[in-house]
Simulated assay, not measured.
Amino acid sequence: MTDFTEFHDELRSLARGLLAKSAGEPVSWKTVTEAGWPGLAAPPEFDGAGAGFAEVAVLLGEAGRAAAVTALPTVLALSVPALAAATADDLRDNIFRETVTGRTLPVLVLDAGEADNAFALDDSPAGPVVTGSADFVLDAPAADLLLVPIPAREELVAVVPDAAGLTITPTPLVDATRSAARVSADRVAAHAVWHFPDQDALRARAAVAVACDSLGSAEAMLAATVAYVRVREQFGRPVGSFQAVKHACADMLVQVTVAGHLVGAAVRAIDEGSADSAIAASRAKSYATSAAVRVAGAALQLHGGFGYTWDSGIHVHLKRATLNRALYGSPAAHRKKLAARYH
């Protein structure tokens, strides 16, 4: 991975400032587009910046830090790479340009639970039709276009949300910063069909994207907690001066630091196309998402009674971190994959 430290710092600073302004409200797609983020990893021929996954990871982390309400992570981590990998034609190129300019918000239909997608593409007198379902698809309710992978045929199918036979059923979530839905297709006409090889990499990329989000959230909770215990006083002294509080904050720091190393290694593996990227993804996903839940829980306790109030905002990160832990494979499922290497 090329070292673009200065660029990453500038990107991080811009994203942190812009996302902080949303204050828990949905980030408008116009704002995201004007910042140029949907096209960050798109090729220059589509007016994109041509950046790699390392740059995308910066935005993913900042989205987690701000607990941002936006479909940007899904578009950056999955939709744009899927379009880039699909066989080029005029329609794909046009969709790619519209994605970069913000006129189209495509969502890859990838089940975020433990199950794999169960879609099939069949021929009919009227053209190709899609049948199948995915139970938990992030940001499906916000999509202008759905991209459905068909692993058995190594194809990617574009489907418009209002197509006959397509049902998008929103899923109620405790995490109010996210949206998800069940996507069901009953012989839905394909808007386009492209050759789409190497689909196995999608889940690893999705897992690392969630790990980046969790790392950003954990960093935010650590920073907020340290700032709070420095000013909150008990018995005439800051609570941060008590040994037990110091130990708790130090434990949070250790977990965030370890998560940062594992997530960084996974990002590099994907950015460089390493053969071990799936292994690195499982390491990062299993540890970082679990650590984020523990760090948010510790933050809740160390904020005392204030931590349990709505104004503290800790509940937002705790709910988001808890959902992250379950997305694209639980920590137990990823540890099982890692353990299988040694059998």
Score class of each variant (00 low, 15 high):
Met1Leu: 09
Met1Ile: 08
Asp9Cys: 06
Gly24Cys: 01
Ala35Thr: 03
Gly36His: 08
Leu40Val: 01
Pro43Ile: 09
Glu45Thr: 09
Phe46Cys: 09
Asp47Asn: 09
Gly50Arg: 01
Gly52Arg: 05
Phe53Ile: 02
Ala54His: 08
Leu60Asp: 00
Arg65Lys: 12
Ala66Lys: 00
Ala68Arg: 03
Val69Gln: 15
Val69Tyr: 10
Leu72Val: 05
Pro73Ile: 03
Thr74Glu: 12
Leu76Val: 05
Leu78Lys: 02
Leu78Ile: 00
Pro81Trp: 06
Leu83Ile: 06
Ala86Cys: 08
Ala88Val: 11
Asp90Asn: 13
Phe96Glu: 04
Glu98Gln: 14
Thr101Trp: 09
Leu105Glu: 05
Pro106His: 01
Val109Leu: 07
Glu114Cys: 07
Ala118His: 08
Ser124Asp: 12
Pro125Ile: 11
Pro128Gln: 02
Val129Leu: 02
Gly132His: 00
Asp135Thr: 12
Phe136Asp: 08
Ala143Val: 02
Ile150Asp: 04
Pro151Thr: 03
Pro151Arg: 03
Glu154Leu: 13
Glu155Met: 09
Ala158Arg: 02
Ala163Thr: 10
Ala164Ile: 10
Pro170Asp: 14
Pro170Glu: 15
Thr171Gly: 07
Thr171Trp: 13
Ala176Phe: 08
Ala176His: 13
Thr177Asp: 07
Ser179Val: 15
Arg182Pro: 06
Ala185Val: 07
Ala185Gly: 04
Ala189Asp: 04
Ala190Pro: 02
His195Gln: 13
His195Trp: 11
His195Lys: 11
Pro197Tyr: 11
Ala201Val: 06
Arg205Pro: 09
Ala207Asp: 08
Ala209Met: 07
Cys212Ser: 03
Asp213Gln: 11
Gly216Pro: 08
Ala218Trp: 03
Thr225Ile: 12
Thr225Arg: 04
Thr225Phe: 10
Val229Cys: 09
Arg230Glu: 15
Pro238Asn: 06
Lys246Tyr: 10
Asp251Val: 11
Val254Gly: 06
Val254Arg: 14
Gln255Arg: 14
Thr257Glu: 12
Ala259Met: 01
Leu262Val: 09
Ala266Thr: 07
Arg268Gly: 08
Arg268Leu: 12
Ala269Gln: 00
Ala275Cys: 07
Ala275Tyr: 06
Ser282Pro: 08
Arg283Val: 04
Tyr287Arg: 10
Ala288Lys: 01
Ser290Asp: 04
Ala291Thr: 08
Gly305Trp: 09
Gly307Leu: 01
Gly307Glu: 00
Gly313Asn: 01
Val316Arg: 15
Leu323Gln: 03
Leu323Arg: 05
Asn324Ser: 13
Leu338Met: 07
Ala339Lys: 08
Ala339Tyr: 02
